[in-house]
Amino acid sequence: METWNQNPSDAVRAHTPLLVNRRIDERVEGCVRYMAEKGDRAEMSRYLERLEREWDISRAISVSTAAMSALGLLLGRRDGGGWRVLSAVATSLLLQHGVFGFGPLSEVFRALGVRTRREIDLEKFAIKALRGDFERIPNDGGPLAKANAALVAAQS
Rank of each mutant, 00 (worst) to 15 (best):
L19I: 11
R117P: 09
L105P: 00
H97I: 00
L75H: 00
I127H: 04
A60L: 03
N21I: 02
T3Q: 08
S92F: 09
G76L: 07
V28P: 06
G76E: 14
L151M: 15
T116N: 08
S45N: 03
E135H: 09
P138K: 07
R78S: 03
G76S: 14
G82T: 03
L112G: 03
S64H: 05
F125H: 12
N7L: 04
R115C: 05
A60K: 09
S87H: 04
N139P: 08
L93G: 00
P143F: 04
R46A: 08
K146H: 15
Y34P: 01
P143N: 10
A67T: 13
R84T: 14
R78D: 10
N21Y: 02
S9I: 12
I137F: 07
E29D: 09
L51H: 03
R41I: 10
S58Q: 13
I24L: 07
D56H: 13
E52M: 07
R118D: 07
P104T: 12
E29H: 13
T3A: 11
A150G: 07
G103P: 02
E107R: 10
K38S: 12
H15E: 10
E43K: 11
V108A: 03
M35H: 13
L95E: 01
A153Y: 14
Y47R: 08
T91M: 06
I137V: 12
D140F: 07
A150K: 00
R46T: 10
Q96G: 12
L130C: 08
Q96K: 13
M1E: 08
P8Q: 05
V114P: 00
S92D: 07
S62I: 12
D133W: 05
